[in-house]
């Protein structure tokens, strides 16, 4: 089951990349396609932040993950590098769980 998802996801994402190399650019450079492809990751990433930080099964909770996210938010505002943001959140949650 998991292997199927891994392989299907890998194949699909590779084909998405290859399509861009192979397809005539006029087809994909239309304004609506361009805007849609730029904004879709924004909507999904934002949803993933919420689900990853607050979802617990089918309910929303505030726990150590939320504190980690808050620290990450501050680090992002301070323009900290990616790894610092991620480590900051992890350390915060780990310390709160001691």
């Amino acid at each position: 089951m998991t292997w199927a998802a891994v392989l299907a996801g890998a194949l699909g994402c590779y084909l998405l990349k290859l399509t861009g190399w192979a397809v005539p650019s006029a087809l994909l450079e239309r304004e609506r396609v361009r805007v849609g492809a730029a904004l879709l990751p924004v909507a999904l990433l934002s949803a993933l932040v919420v689900v990853q930080a607050f979802a617990d099964g089918r309910s929303l909770t505030l726990d150590a993950r939320a504190a980690g996210l808050a620290v990450a938010g501050v680090l992002v505002l301070l323009r900290a590098p990616f790894l610092v943001v991620v480590l900051g959140a992890a350390v915060t949650a780990a310390v709160l769980r001691l």
Partner: peptide
Amino acid sequence: AVASALMLGSRNTLYAVRLAA
């Protein structure tokens, strides 16, 4: 899971268009 991954991967298609040029 696969659908989420594909939607996030769709921006790579646009990157590839720019790169091919």
